[in-house]
Design a protein around this nucleic acid. Structure first.
Length: 423
DNA sequence: TCTGGGGTCCTAGGACCC
DNA sequence: TCTGGGGTCCTAGGACCC
């Protein structure tokens, strides 16, 4: 049997910050309250967060800036370059507040967390939700919404309702079977967590339009035409928990640093410097989780919106696996040399680390003398403590990371270097 | 003129093996 | 007309999420 088939008795809450990045900008600039606010992606390319007022103007998620730029003049839209240092810091404050209610939380993304409510002795779930909401607002100034339900997928549904249905005022409890069914009937199948555009289209073609219809659909057809993941989603809609709370942050299996450049790069030395910067950032994150990388991918790309598009990627093996930045940079440069064609203007590049082993595992650094290894480790620790204020020599050539960020707000909460325009 | 970044997982298909 | 079959491993590409 694939799954335990009895309905779940657990209770989960999904806490989600409302329009997170836009709310963070408002926090330090109250004059933005009530006005449409949009936060842009790197290079000020497209919208990645919108206040409710901005959504009401029809500015879509991921919509390119140039398409709605005119609304700045006509509708008074306030626009900001992404300030990930600020958002990361605010996220940590929100999560710390949630952890005061229970240590059993799963930080799912920068602005979302699942809380296990079992063992808390909650009698009135609605009142509990309101308490969490009030407390987070008081501690951080950020508005959140809560959805309470028996499974993660239903908690997502409840959270959606908490945001969209005014009478819920940010808290929706969905524990009763009849209430679940009624709610699912009002939700388009494409809005269900785990059902993307492609699966929604297939389901619509089968006559499945709502989450309720998906809940009642044929398991065998789901398994045959979609995937086991989608079948899990269907079970979760039925109140049968297939996805557990993952309290410990899982080890990443790959770590990538990639950027689209604000201005295209023609000079191979500059491209190399940028790739070295990406390597240093990925390596820092790698050491942060105590891993060493056994593999690396480097890729480059010209603008896909121009003729003579060129994209290429190459893999290399690190033997033994390492987290030592100079060794990783050396590999990155060798790989880049194999795919970088002179004369082209590059718009995007990236470094992906993979094939991780624990940094202290046997085999990691097997061929380095122990004294050498220890020296390298101490050096990297010292570098990481300096928190981005150190530049590797080859990075310096890159003059930052070639990002355009015309409208970034101040670093209200961070001492991070102004030079490194990354999260 | 101007279109993000960082992840995970599944599936299909080929190579290879017995 | 013709075909063994089943297993594993790897990779590329797709789909999805925030």
């Amino acid at each position: 049997m694939l799954f335990e088939l009895s309905p779940s008795r657990q209770t989960l809450a999904l806490v989600d910050c409302n329009n997170f990045y836009a709310s963070c900008e408002r926090l330090f600039n109250p004059s933005l309250n009530g006005k449409p606010v949009v936060v842009l992606s790197n290079n000020d390319g497209c919208a990645i967060a919108r206040s409710n007022e901005a959504k009401a103007l029809g500015i879509g998620m991921g919509e390119p800036y140039f398409k709605w730029k005119h609304l700045i003049e006509t509708q008074g839209v306030k626009v900001f370059s992404a300030n990930f240092a600020l958002y990361g810091d605010m996220s940590r404050r929100v999560m710390a507040t949630l952890q005061q209610f229970t240590p059993n939380i799963e930080i799912y993304s920068i602005d979302e967390a699942f809380m296990s409510l079992d063992d808390l002795g909650i009698v009135d779930h609605e009142a509990f939700g309101r308490d969490v909401r009030r407390t987070v607002l008081r501690h951080t100034g950020l508005p959140v919404s809560l959805g309470l339900a028996r499974t993660k997928t239903l908690a997502k549904v409840a959270n959606h309702a908490a945001k969209k249905v005014p009478r819920h005022q940010g808290v929706c409890v969905l524990l009763d079977d009849a209430a679940v069914r009624a709610r699912l009937a009002s939700i388009p199948v494409g809005d269900v967590w785990g059902v993307g555009r492609r699966k929604a289209k297939w389901l619509n073609d089968q006559g499945i339009l709502t989450a309720e219809a998906l809940m009642d659909f044929d398991d065998r057809l789901i398994r045959k035409h979609l995937s086991v993941m989608t079948l899990r989603t269907v079970f979760e809609l039925r109140g049968i928990a297939c996805l557990g709370l993952e309290a410990a942050a899982p080890f990443k299996k790959s770590i990538a640093t990639t950027r689209t450049f604000g201005d295209e790069i023609r000079d191979p030395a500059e491209l190399e410097a940028a790739v070295c910067s990406f390597t240093a950032l990925s390596a820092e994150s790698l050491r942060g989780q105590g891993s060493a990388a056994g593999g690396m991918q480097v890729f480059v790309e010209t603008s896909p919106f121009k003729p003579d598009y060129y994209a290429n990627a190459v893999f290399g093996d690190m033997c033994p696996p390492t987290s030592f930045t100079p060794a990783l940079m050396g590999m990155a440069r060798r790989l880049l040399a194999r795919i970088c064609r002179p004369g082209l203007s590059y718009k995007r590049a990236g470094v992906v680390l993979m094939g991780f082993v624990r940094a202290d595992a046997e085999g990691a650094g097997l061929y380095e003398a122990p004294a050498q290894q220890e020296k390298q480790g101490r050096l990297m620790e010292a570098v990481d403590r300096l928190d981005g204020d150190v530049f590797w020599a080859r990075e310096q050539l890159s003059d930052g990371l070639h990002l355009k960020q015309a409208r970034r707000s101040g670093r209200f909460t961070s001492r991070w270097s102004e030079l490194l325009q990354v999260c």
